[in-house]
């Protein structure tokens, strides 16, 4: 079926497709000399965030991505792409290093959400995400975020404060997973299909709402059908974005990003008569 005729529910299924290109695939395809950096320098290492320095067309960049893993063992280690606070604190560390060494940051978002576990709460999941948002909002290097699969909740947004936010055609981005949404609003997780229809989580919806700037087309039937075609399209888009952003001054980059998020939802506010 042609991509433009897909329903939101079908796109959610494609965004979660087990063969959909993941963090490792995208990094291998787009970058050279990727050097993964591990650990939050406080207490642990979370493999659900894959990050480090790499070369993009010969220039150093910092890459930060959600990782789901490629086999059961990795899925479990990565909590199926749901980061713990250690992952978000590693991301903060990498962002601050990118700032120090004046490297652009490229993030790849693919997570159902932050991990809802006991230890994650004990170590301050909320604080870790909040600090990611605060730090990334003020960076003076270019930040380009790409939603590649599932963009679920604050766990996704933590890597999403970019000067430019791109989204693959069949990726989804939402306040919560459709299952979680249905469970909270209707107390019935099985109504997730219905949730998909009202949540406005497709790339086209989000472009219309001003949450994303550009949609990256996918091969017919989804990115996993012809990954190399996707990588070429994505590569060209990232080159274009970075070339444009590299022309801006550090202050303009920070100010532009602030302004971009400052107006988010401004059409969602009205003056009530009192």
């Amino acid at each position: 079926m042609a991509n433009e005729n897909l329903t939101p529910t079908q796109r959610v299924a494609l965004a979660r497709h087990p063969e959909r290109p993941g963090a490792e695939d995208i990094i291998n395809a787009l970058f050279t000399e990727f050097f993964p950096q591990r650990g939050d320098r406080r207490c642990g290492e979370d493999p659900a965030i894959l990050g480090g320095v790499a070369l993009f067309h010969g220039k150093p960049v910092t890459v930060i991505a959600h990782r789901k893993g490629r086999n059961l063992e990795e899925h479990l280690a990565c909590h199926f792409g749901m980061p713990s606070p250690e992952g978000y604190r590693k991301a903060q560390r990498l962002m601050e290093q990118a700032e120090k060494f004046r490297r652009p940051i490229l993030t790849f978002i693919d997570t159902p959400g932050a991990y809802p576990g006991l230890e994650a709460e004990a170590r301050g999941q909320g604080e870790a995400i909040a600090r990611c948002l605060a730090i990334s909002s003020a960076l003076t290097v270019p930040v380009v975020a790409v939603v590649t699969g599932e963009g679920g909740s604050g766990g996704a947004l933590a890597l999403g404060v970019g000067n430019r936010v791109l989204m693959l055609d069949n990726a989804v981005y939402s306040v919560l997973s459709p299952e979680g949404f249905a469970a909270i609003l209707w107390k019935d997780a099985s109504r997730s299909g219905e949730a998909c229809d009202v949540m406005k989580l497709t790339a086209a919806d989000l472009l219309a709402l001003g949450v994303v700037d550009e949609i990256i087309p996918e091969p017919e039937g989804g990115a996993h059908k012809e990954p190399n075609t996707l990588y070429q399209t994505l590569d060209a888009a990232l080159v274009r974005e970075l070339t444009a952003l590299n022309k801006l001054s550090p202050a303009a980059l920070a100010a532009g990003r602030y302004k971009k998020f400052r107006v988010m939802g401004s059409s969602a506010v009205r003056k009530e008569r009192l």
Binding site: A130, S153, S174, V175, L176, L209, V211, R262, M264
Partner: peptide, 21 residues
């Protein structure tokens, strides 16, 4: 989050955090 405002609710996290920073 305010479920009925979906993604725009989510974006308020970035907006408020940026203002505080």
């Amino acid at each position: 989050a305010r479920m009925q405002e979906g993604i725009l609710s989510l974006m308020q996290m970035a907006k408020t955090a940026a203002a505080l920073e």
